[in-house]
Amino acid sequence: MALITCEKAVFAYEGRVVVDALDLAVERGEYLCIVGENGSGKSTLVKGLLGLISPVSGRVRYGDGLRRTEIGYLPQRTDVQNDFPASVWEVVSSGCRGRGPFLTRAMRQTAMENMALMDITGIRDQSFMRLSGGQQQRALLARALCATRSLLLLDEPVAGLDPVVTRELYEVIAMLHRKRGLTVVMISHDIGAALGYADRILHMAHGATFLGTPEAYRQSPLGMAFAGGEAHA
């Protein structure tokens, strides 16, 4: 069974339907990219997948051992406060789930491992707000990893980053997908990268959507129009 299944899910934002009757099954181990123009309902879908908003009709189901609260979520950079006094350690360890008031030994261990994985152990005690954009994303990815064992949901992870850092971050995400076997769902504006890394593409547009492999997307009228020459570059 798929990790997340949307069955004819309809999501509305401020009373307006923005995701209409979406059928989608996120399979374990895949790398799914969601593309589409601004206002095409991508961010609303993210909220729906996270269970922060309920579908107006249809349903969202979690399966294969995934619970709603076990999704490793990387929010858009604009949603994270940049003038917040917090150390990298505080940010990363806040991803650890658990009932108790204090961090347990196991939670510390998880946080340390994920910091090592993201190569940010050396900046553990630095101030989050003083990090570069790329380092902040790594810290937030480490936090997301603390919250999940199986699924990462990334909302425009490279927005506003320079090309070198962007490439590094894509490689880190690809590494998590390949080596850790994490399922990745990524919202992206970067159609070139989406076609390069993803196993499947979901294109969201007003009503017309595409769901399939990058190859099929390149051949489709929608993909040709949206990706243009970029896909062949």
Binding site: Y73, P75, D79, F84, A147
Partner: peptide, 12 residues
């Protein structure tokens, strides 16, 4: 909740 309310809500 203070640092990132959306993340906190998403992760229960």
């Amino acid at each position: 909740v203070t640092f990132d309310e959306t993340f906190a809500r998403a992760t229960g």
